[in-house]
Structure formats: C-alpha cells, structure tokens
Design a protein around this nucleic acid. Structure first.
Length: 503
DNA sequence: CTACCGGTTGACCAA
DNA sequence: GTTGGTCAACCGGTA
C-alpha cells in the first residue's frame, strides 16, 4: 500500500486564514491531487529563553485560535515541537511531501532557515511556493521601481507606491475536502501546547490586555474601522504616549504575528476614508501602515539592517558600554519616573505607545545613557508583543539618529515630554506605584521634593525609589557634542571612500 | 554639476 | 497661550 502524499503549508508570521494566498495555494494543490493537507507550525521548545513570556502567551493564543479556525475548515494545525531544520527533512519523508507553501519573511532567522530548507527540498524534488503577503506592497517590486536601491525617505517611498494597485484580499471559507484529511489528524502530540507545557503558571502573570489570535485581531480591526470619524481625524503626533488606555489602535501585535493582514487593514482604512475629509500620511492611520511598508522595504534592501557595523545606511557612533545603566533602563529603575513608567508598562503589558518608544529609545542612546541602539533593540525584541525585525531596527536607527533622522540635538526631556499630555502624572502613578502619593509638582522629578514630602508620600528617593542614574541636563549636552564629533568623523570617512573627481 | 528644499511627532526662551 | 528663533544638523531628492 502506498502512502498518500502530502502538501504542507508552513505557518510562520502568517497566523491567519484570511488573506493567506500561500495557504490558498496549498489547499488547492491538495484538493486537486487528492493529497493530504498538513498545516504546520514549528514551536521551538527553547522559545521561552528567546522571547518574553507575554509574547509567548500571545503566540500560543494565536496558534490556538488558528487551530480552531482551521478546524472550521475541516482541517487542523500540526504544531510540532522542534525547529524546522531538524524536523522538516524527517517530515518530508514520513509524510511523502510533494508540495510546500509558506509566506516570505525577511527576518534573517527565516532567511537563513529557508536557504537550508530550499536546498533539501530541491534534492527531494519538493516544489516550494513562497508568497510575499506580510505587507501591502511587494517590497521587491518597490526596490525594482527605484532602480534596485532603497528609497531613503518616506516621501520617496510614497511616491513609488502611489500608483501601484493593491490586490484584493483572498478569502478561504469553503471547508476542505475530506480526501485531504489524514489519519494522524487526531494525534495529541501535534496539539497546540498550553503555557503549562513551558512550566509557566498563568495565574502568576498579569491579566491579559491584548489576547492573541486572528479572531481577536479582526474583531479589533472592525471595532476601530467602525469609528469612521475617529479614523479620518487621526493624527499620530496628537495621540498621547501616556494615556492610561491606549490612544491608538494596538493592532500592531496582530499585524506582526500575521493574525491580521496588512492588506485587509489597508482596504478597510480606504473604505473608512472614502467620501470623508481625512488626515493624510505621514500622520494619518494609513500613514502609519505606510511607515511599516517603508521600513520593510528598507529592511529588505539593506545589508545588516539590524546592526551598526556593516550597515551601509547607519552612521557609525562610538557607543559606550554600561551594563548597570542598561539593566536599570530595561527594568524601569533609572530614577526618571516617566522613563521608568514606560519601561514597566512595556514589561507588564507588551505594548507602549510609539512616542513612548521615542522617549525611552532616545534616553538609552543619544539622549542620556550613550548605549548602543542594538542593546535597546534586543530588549524591545524580548518584551514587545508587536516585535517586528524590520520595524524594530528601522525605528531604533531613526531614534538614535543613526539613519533616516539626523537632528540629534532634538532630545526628549524625561521631565518635560510627558507633561505635555499628562500634567498630573497619572500614568506614572499607575506604573510606578511607589510614587503614587507624590504631589503633582514633584511627580516627574521626585528628587526635588523636600525630605518631609518624600516621607509623607511614603517613598524616599534613594531608599524606596532609585536616585537618578544620570543628570539629564548635564549629560544630554555632553552627548550632543559626542554626536557632533561622530557625525564629523563619519562625513570624513564617507568623503575618503568617494573617488576623486576626474579632471 | 550646484543649489536649494524639506523632513511624522524637541526644548527652551523671548516676545 | 501662541509663535518663532535658536541650539550642536544631515542628506536624499529634485530643479
């Protein structure tokens, strides 16, 4: 008896059914050839050491939701404990795989993995279909349109995509043929794990603010897109980094995990804007989506985009090393309440407002601590639910004035910046509760409070809350000088590399 | 080639 | 309260 061959769809950063062309291709192939359909996901047992617990929880919920959505389509998710390079070749044999589909992901982890897998598949005569479907536009086409080089400004990027039509979303609603089901469909070993399997006791975790999954992501999208007035008036710089409830949509974790299609977001935004006066990029909601597209294009077209050394668009800056300061920053113990509140919200909830990211990124790098943006990017990678390789690297280079942005003397003040949208310091009181009882006059600068007030408020600086690890007023000026020097050196180096003009 | 424009979102001070 | 200049400024893009 010969085994029925299989078609694999390999889920990675596309944890959804809707608008998933690669999945559609796999289903069609399986049905046409009466092969078994195997939707798979590789979950590395070591993943707990690689991503934060909040993100792991979001991922597992997304996988559980994906499995239940696949079941509605008369299929299931095969969640495989292990990494792809070790397990896929075995599955190729065991399942008699003839055809594999997946989404194109540009995070180097996936790129390297794909190279190995593609080689093995070629030897075994397995046909691979990869689809660019994580973005609205195909960044390869954008790069081509720009003569193979990366558009270095947002405006240039917009001009390149202006007339590019955006494809309609793919819908998958018809249940998959029984012919495509295999007998191992009931095996428990392929079930999506619970957090317990990772020795995580969920009752110890903070309550969940943003549950993972396609169902939740799509629901959230419809909820926000229904508020047409709000969508059309949206201007990012006018939203607040320190409101108690998010002032923006928090669709980002769903988009980064692929629970929500960026293309669906695009079409729904266009629908909401249609026939109404509305704000425009860069500040509009559509503009936010286009920033993502911009960074994806830059990430796809730039070598070592997530590093300083060897990154052709990144200014080389002699960052210092200070593990104590880095740790204080990451744990929200810098002694600057606004910075600490942001970092603690990040750690607790896995999401902070974009402008809050500006504040703490500037503080870590060019503003105060003079620590490499790569270190900050690593911390964000652990904590952010919406971690995305391209966006993380792009935004960190921006904020550290290493690429795209050059006005390094525009430094965010850890005292003044937050006051603009939260005079009373309610945000600080929530996330740095030891300062809860401080008078408003000192909530951003507790070290200035007289000892008697500190005692009355039940929080003495240096005892119950850390002293400032740096003096912002002094250090940010010194750092500006360092930035200026680094820029000059960079300019000289660039000039040296340029060939002499020919007479 | 040169010259100029403009860039998602700073802080501070003076008027 | 608002506006405009200043501060340590670059560089892609276009005419």
């Amino acid at each position: 008896m010969t085994k029925v061959p299989s078609v694999i769809h390999w889920f990675r950063l596309d944890l959804r059914i809707h608008d998933n062309l690669a999945l559609r291709n796999a289903i069609n192939e399986a049905e046409n050839r009466k092969h078994h359909l195997k939707p798979i996901y590789f979950l590395d047992p070591d993943i707990k050491d690689k991503i934060g617990i909040n993100r792991l929880r979001f991922l597992i919920q997304s996988l559980q939701d994906l499995n239940s959505n696949l079941k509605k389509l008369n299929s299931r998710l095969y969640c495989i404990r292990g990494n792809a390079i070790n397990y896929l070749p075995k599955l190729f044999e065991d399942w008699q795989v003839k055809f594999l589909t997946c989404q194109v992901d540009i995070d180097p982890i996936y790129v390297e993995q794909d190279e190995v897998i593609e080689k093995i598949a070629e030897e075994k005569d397995i046909f691979i279909v990869k689809r660019v479907q994580h973005t609205v536009y195909d960044y390869n086409n954008v790069l081509k349109k720009n003569n193979g080089s990366v558009p270095m400004t947002y405006q240039k990027f917009l001009s390149l995509v202006q007339d590019v039509p955006v494809k309609e979303c793919i819908e998958i609603t018809k249940p998959i043929s029984d012919d495509c089901k295999s007998k191992d469909g009931d095996l428990k070993k392929y079930d999506v794990p619970t957090l317990e399997e990772f020795q995580i006791d969920e009752s110890n975790l903070e309550p969940l603010k943003y549950p993972g999954g396609e169902t939740e992501g799509v629901k959230r999208l419809h909820m926000y897109m229904g508020r047409r007035e709000w969508v059309c008036k949206f201007e990012k710089p006018n939203s607040s980094p320190n409101s108690i409830e998010p002032s923006t949509t928090v669709l980002s974790p769903y988009i980064s995990h692929g629970c929500l299609s960026a293309k669906l977001f695009y079409h729904k935004l266009k629908e909401a804007e249609n026939g109404m006066p509305h704000s425009d990029p860069p500040v509009s909601l559509l503009g936010q989506l286009m920033w993502r597209e911009f960074y994806y294009t830059a990430g796809a077209g730039t070598k070592n985009f997530d590093k300083m050394v060897g990154n052709p668009v990144c200014t080389q800056i002699p960052w210092g090393k200070n593990d104590e300061h880095l740790k204080a920053w990451a744990e929200g113990k810098t002694g600057y309440p606004f910075v600490d509140a942001i970092m603690r919200q990040l750690k607790q909830e896995g999401w902070i407002h974009h402008l809050a990211r500006h504040m703490v990124a500037c503080f870590l790098t060019r503003g105060d601590l003079w620590i490499s943006w790569e270190e900050g990017a690593k911390v964000f990678e652990g904590y952010l639910l919406d971690y995305d390789w391209s966006l993380n690297a792009g935004n960190w280079t921006w904020l550290s004035a290493s690429a795209f942005f050059y006005k390094f003397f525009r430094v965010y003040s850890p005292i003044a910046f937050g006051k603009k949208t939260d005079k009373e310091g309610l945000y600080i009181r929530k996330y740095v509760p030891e300062l809860k009882k401080y008078p408003t006059a000192f909530i951003y600068e507790p070290w200035k409070a007289p000892k008697s007030i500190q005692t009355t408020a039940g929080c003495v600086v240096g005892v119950d809350y850390p002293k400032r690890i740096v003096d912002h007023d002094k250090i940010h000026k010194e750092n500006c000088t360092k930035m200026s020097t680094a820029y000059k050196l960079n300019k000289e180096r660039k000039a040296m590399k340029r060939p002499f003009p020919i007479d």
